[in-house]
Amino acid sequence: MTFERRLNIATQTAKALAHIQSTTQIIHRDIKSSNILLTDDYTVKVSDFGISRFIPLDQTHIQTLVHGTLGYIDPEYFRSGILTEKSDVYSFGMVLVELITGRKVFSNDETENLGLVVFFVSTLESYCLIEILDDQVKKDGISNDIKCLAKLAKDCIELEGKKRPSIMEVKERLEELRQCFINKEFC
């Protein structure tokens, strides 16, 4: 899958999540790659709202039993049971990491025994991102665009929810990055 196609999938998914959260106040709670369906022309359809929760307008969070898929669950939500819109941002960040690296959240690769999130962040912080990129991403992507997408993924998977961007900010950053990529501009 080309870098441009991955960027389009990420952008469409972020748009869908931003729309869902802003118009319905619904938190999906199970954003993962297998719940992002693609049509024949690679149009994104976010699916499986079976464990979604509504957060009333006058609240910023709700206390609830933890549900979701391990590896994608917001660590803060996992520890506290407090669900916020930033919980979906974390899960979406893990999808971004998968799109960039071509690796699954859980792998038998010994280098990832601490999980993809720790492996990704430590590699990014030691300036070795190129080592974990998917081969097609390396081939198709423009270095700066890849770094921007990796930085956004890292921001989304911050351990503290208050340090993560909102899904609306994620959507806007992805739209800008996509436009720069299409126009071959430096973002």
Rank of each mutant, 00 (worst) to 15 (best):
V97D: 11
I73T: 15
V89C: 11
M94D: 01
N113W: 15
L114W: 03
T101R: 06
T23L: 08
V95E: 02
N108L: 06
T123W: 01
V97G: 02
I130N: 04
L70N: 06
V44W: 02
N35M: 05
S22M: 04
G93Q: 03
E125C: 02
S52P: 00
L83V: 13
Q25M: 12
N35A: 10
P56H: 01
Q21M: 15
Y42E: 12
F78H: 12
L57H: 15
L37W: 03
S52V: 06
N108C: 03
S126E: 13
G68V: 04
L99K: 01
V118N: 02
Y127N: 15
F78Q: 12
D41A: 08
K104C: 08
Y72P: 00
I31V: 15
K104L: 13
T101M: 04
V66R: 15
Y42W: 09
L38V: 04
L96I: 02
D48E: 08
R79K: 12
E76I: 05
S52E: 09
D40F: 13
V105E: 06
L37K: 04
I55G: 08
L70E: 14
S47H: 03
F78S: 11
S33D: 09
S91F: 09
E98I: 01
Q25Y: 14
E76C: 14
T60W: 14
R53K: 15
S33E: 10
